[in-house]
């Protein structure tokens, strides 16, 4: 089956990111196709490339990137929700005249239309929220 995940909780604030990540791994382990993870609301914070959690805690940003690298899962971040919260890739940083950027590949800033598309294209869309 084709699965999609919608994540709306910030990492290290609620359990939503942990639940979503565990579920993502379980979906892949069952042999399903995970067609994408869409980050919306405070979930966009999962894309913060500068996150530096203590070493004895799971590094959620890296864990998402590993999931993308190992299984080719697109990590789509709502651009409107991200920009408001200070999450900009190099292109957006330049466009807004900001020094430095806070989002990098494999996370990609994209429009909300991608969420609707993911939800209607996949057999299952599972939402994790705070």
């Amino acid at each position: 089956m084709r699965y999609g995940i919608l994540l709306m909780g910030a990492p290290y604030s609620s359990q939503a990111s942990h639940s979503a990540l565990r579920f993502a791994k379980a979906v892949v382990a069952r042999g399903h196709a995970l067609e994408g993870v869409f980050f919306y609301h405070d979930g966009v914070q999962n894309a913060a490339r500068l996150a530096a959690p203590p070493q004895d805690e799971p590094h959620l940003v890296d864990a998402w990137a590993e999931l993308a690298a190992e299984h080719g899962v697109p990590l789509q971040v709502c651009i409107a929700a991200a920009l408001r919260r200070g999450l900009l890739d190099e292109r957006e940083a330049a466009r807004h005249g900001k020094q430095g950027h806070s989002v990098e590949a494999p996370f990609e800033l994209t429009g909300l239309g991608q969420l609707v598309d993911l939800g209607l294209r996949c057999d299952r869309l599972i939402t994790f929220a705070p």
């Binding site: 429009g111 239309g113 969420l115 209607l120």
Partner: peptide, 19 residues
Amino acid sequence: TSWLREGLDAALVAAAFGR
């Protein structure tokens, strides 16, 4: 909170895409 605004945004985008 921003839940209402962001929920409405999702609805508007879906409608704009013809859903």
